[in-house]
Amino acid sequence: DEVTIHLGDKTIRVDGLDKELLEILKELARRGADEEELRKEIERWER
Rank of each mutant, 00 (worst) to 15 (best):
D1N: 13
E35W: 11
T4R: 07
I5C: 08
E27P: 00
D34W: 02
E2S: 14
D9Q: 06
T4I: 14
K26V: 12
L17G: 04
E35C: 04
G32P: 00
A29F: 15
R44E: 07
L28W: 04
E37K: 06
T4V: 15
D18W: 06
V14F: 15
A33K: 03
L7R: 02
R31L: 06
E2G: 15
I5E: 04
K19F: 10
K19V: 09
E35F: 10
E35D: 06
G8D: 07
E37F: 06
R30P: 00
E27S: 14
G16K: 11
V14T: 06
A29S: 07
G8L: 07
L25R: 00
A33E: 02
G16Q: 13
I24G: 01
T4Y: 14
T11V: 12
V3Y: 15
E2F: 14
E43R: 06
V14S: 03
R47T: 09
L22W: 12
D9M: 05
L21H: 02
L38I: 14
E46I: 15
H6K: 12
R30D: 03
V14M: 06
E2D: 11
V3N: 15
E36F: 14
E20H: 10
R47F: 13
I12Y: 03
E27C: 15
V14P: 04
R31A: 10
R39A: 07
E43L: 13
E41L: 08
E43S: 05
E27W: 08
K26A: 09
H6V: 14
V14W: 08
E36V: 11
D34H: 07
G32E: 01
D1T: 14
L17C: 06
L21K: 03
R47G: 11
L7I: 14
R44S: 08
L28K: 02
A29D: 01
K19L: 12
R39C: 05
L25K: 00
E20F: 09
R44G: 05
R31M: 07
V14H: 04
K40T: 07
R13M: 08
R39S: 03
E27Y: 11
L22D: 01
A33C: 02
R39F: 08
V14E: 03
L28I: 02
G32Y: 01
H6R: 11
A33G: 05
D34Q: 10
E27D: 10
T4Q: 10
K40F: 08
E23T: 11
L25F: 01
L22P: 00
R31G: 04
D1I: 13
I24Y: 10
R39P: 00
R44N: 10
A33S: 04
R31I: 05
I42V: 04
A33R: 02
I5Q: 03
A29L: 14
I24N: 04
G8I: 08
K10T: 15
A29W: 15
I42H: 01
L21V: 02
